[in-house]
Design a protein around this nucleic acid. Structure first.
Length: 297
DNA sequence: CGGATTTGACCCGCGC
DNA sequence: GCGCGGGTCAAATCCG
């Protein structure tokens, strides 16, 4: 946790300051006007850089707070999940080692009489024998009643159910590339926080993400839950859906440099959308070019 | 009209 | 064996 928060700090100081050297101001009034303008712009750039740095600091502070909050609520939910004696065991892929199914009741307990039964059972197990199961949390508008999670992949909804432990319905999705890609996901609102969508992924896509844009610009935002169940891990990130994998084999798909890169990209993206910023940036670049021109002469 | 979504019915595992 | 509950199927419906 500490590791991640410290390592996730991204030095975003863009060094936009254009050390405008005191140029030999010509008597020419237009030149002096230009220099004035350059000075003004460079000061503005300085200001912008400071603002950006401040924003980053604020972001880090907020992120820390969110982590703490999430960890707290997570501890609570874990207690909630363990304490009430559930009548039924939740499915293997949801809460236990999924390989328990692989071992196969069929092997040890198979008898002649239920051969046919086991045949069917095996068929089903094949679909159950999984793969990686991961859970991802998405922050959405509480008023948003759709169970759509824009994670970049295309999904086909094939069912919806109201489950006992959660009043909000659970939606079932298959990857749109099925049957070639057998990834499934379940999406349900969190019991504690209706604005949080919990997506449970089963399996891994065997094809590239069709649209990366959606994953970044969608309605939903991944929320960083570095230590949802394992706070010690702390591999948190802004955009990477933190997977709460049930199997050891699940790779951590993004390391810190990548996280930083992504973070910077996101910041750059939001900044470039601001016309004021782009104007200032253009001015800064022009200023720099102008400066170079002057020194070359 | 074709693909996506909805929704009731059905299947199957599990506990009693 | 029965009933409950989660997961899936598939016909009906919606929508671009």
């Amino acid at each position: 946790m500490d590791q991640s928060s410290s390592s996730s700090f991204v030095d975003t100081s863009l060094d936009l300051t254009i050390g405008v050297t005191r140029m030999r101001v010509k008597e020419d009034s237009t030149t002096s006007a230009l220099v004035d303008e350059l000075n003004r712009v460079s000061a503005e750039n300085k200001k912008l850089s400071e603002m950006l740095t401040l924003m980053c600091e604020n972001y880090n502070v907020l992120r820390k707070q969110l982590m703490e909050y999430v960890n707290k609520s997570n501890n609570m939910t874990e207690r909630d999940q363990t304490s009430p004696p559930k009548k039924r065991k939740s499915p293997a892929r949801d809460d236990a080692v999924s390989s328990a199914v692989i071992g196969g009741v069929s092997e040890s307990s198979s008898t002649d009489q239920d051969g046919q039964y086991l045949c069917k059972k095996k068929q089903r197990e094949e679909t159950v024998v999984k793969e990686n199961v991961s859970r991802v949390y998405y922050k959405t508008e509480a008023s948003d009643t759709t169970l759509v999670v824009k994670d970049g992949y295309q999904w086909r909804k094939y069912g919806q159910k109201v489950t006992r432990d959660n009043p909000s319905p659970r939606a079932y999705f298959k990857c749109a590339c099925a049957p070639s890609c057998s990834v499934k996901k379940k999406v349900q609102r969190s019991v504690e926080d209706q604005s949080v969508l919990v997506a449970t992924y089963e399996g891994e896509h065997n094809h590239p993400m069709p649209s990366k844009i959606d994953s970044n610009n969608g309605l939903n935002r991944y929320i960083s839950l570095g230590g949802h169940t394992a706070p010690a891990k702390g591999s948190s990130s802004l955009a990477e859906p933190v997977t709460e994998s049930k199997k050891v084999t699940s790779p951590s798909r993004m390391d810190i440099p990548e996280v930083q890169k992504l973070l910077v990209e996101q910041m750059a993206c939001s900044l470039t959308k601001d016309p004021n910023f782009t104007a200032a940036l253009a001015a800064a670049v022009t200023g720099r070019l102008y400066q170079q021109n002057q020194t070359e002469k």
